[in-house]
Amino acid sequence: MSIASLTDPITAEGGRATFHDLDHWMQGRTLYGGASALIAYTTAARAYTDLPPLRAGQIAFVAPTGPEVELKREIVRQGRNVAQVRSEIWCEGKCTLSAFWLFGTEREPNAIHPPAGIADWPGLPEDAAPVMDGKGPAFIKNNFELRRAQELRGSGEPVVRRWARLSDREGLDPVSELILLGDVMPPGAMRAMQRQGPISSINWSFNLLDTAPRTREGWWLSENASQHAAGGYSSERLRLWNADGKQVLDGMQCVAIFG
């Protein structure tokens, strides 16, 4: 019932909702970012069932999200091909997450340009060694299986790359799976930190390169790479590939680096 604890309380009408048994989805004092993003996406998708496929999302993690919420959503604009929807999570009268979703119908292509192949292919997930087994924040220990996808350990190039999959994917559509999983890695800047300290995602934006993503046995290759870190913040590029090396998501994130 792990996934159900995030989605069952959400109705097409939105409004007030109570989520139970969220301890296994927590990251410190707030709900893990991928989990809260999934709630916001499901709120929009269940309210407007005739939308075209999801193409992109922009999520702002405004404040800690808890179990007692109010779910808001609205269609900002719906044209012939593209619909743009806003959804929000409110706790105790304050907005804790704001998301903007872009849905678009497929058209006859006037440009075709596949993503570049992945450099330094790490090999198959089935052959990779487990990492973080029984360690890390609650949401990782209880919901994800991670395997090594790079030789680097400790300080060095500010890139974190792991094979990742959900322990329970039952009833989850592929797009929701990527939203839930897309924010699972720590920032690449972690490898450049001069001393240990807390980190916090501030936002996350992504483009889906495949509106019906598929992989083998639930494995996705997840990478966070710091493009620039200074002044207590890191600009991160987030990417996901399937088990055959096809990129399915391209994203950016701003992360606060404390300590």
Rank of each mutant, 00 (worst) to 15 (best):
V69R: 15
E70W: 09
L71M: 10
K72W: 06
R73D: 04
R73F: 00
G79T: 04
R80M: 00
N81M: 05
N81L: 12
V82G: 06
A83E: 02
Q84S: 12
Q84L: 13
E88T: 06
E88M: 13
G93E: 14
K94E: 11
K94Q: 14
C95P: 00
C95A: 13
T96S: 14
T96A: 10
L97G: 05
L102M: 15
G104S: 11
G104K: 10
R107M: 14
P109C: 03
N110P: 09
A111F: 08
A116G: 09
G117T: 13
G117S: 09
A119L: 14
D120I: 10
D120Y: 12
D120M: 14
W121F: 15
L124I: 07
L124Q: 06
E126N: 10
A128E: 05
A128R: 06
P130R: 09
P130Y: 12
V131E: 06
M132C: 12
D133T: 10
D133G: 02
G134W: 02
K135C: 00
F139C: 00
F139S: 00
I140N: 03
E145Q: 10
E145P: 09
R147T: 02
R148Q: 15
L152Y: 04
G154V: 08
S155W: 00
E157Q: 14
P158M: 13
V160I: 15
R161M: 11
R162F: 01
R162H: 08
R162M: 08
D168I: 10
E170M: 11
G171T: 11
G171K: 08
L172V: 07
P174Y: 04
V175T: 15
V175R: 06
S176L: 01
G182T: 07
M185A: 08
P186Y: 07
P187Y: 00
M190K: 10
M190C: 09
R191H: 08
Q194D: 05
Q194R: 14
R195S: 14
Q196E: 06
G197V: 11
P198N: 10
P198M: 03
I199G: 11
I199S: 13
N203K: 10
N203H: 07
W204H: 13
S205Y: 02
F206E: 05
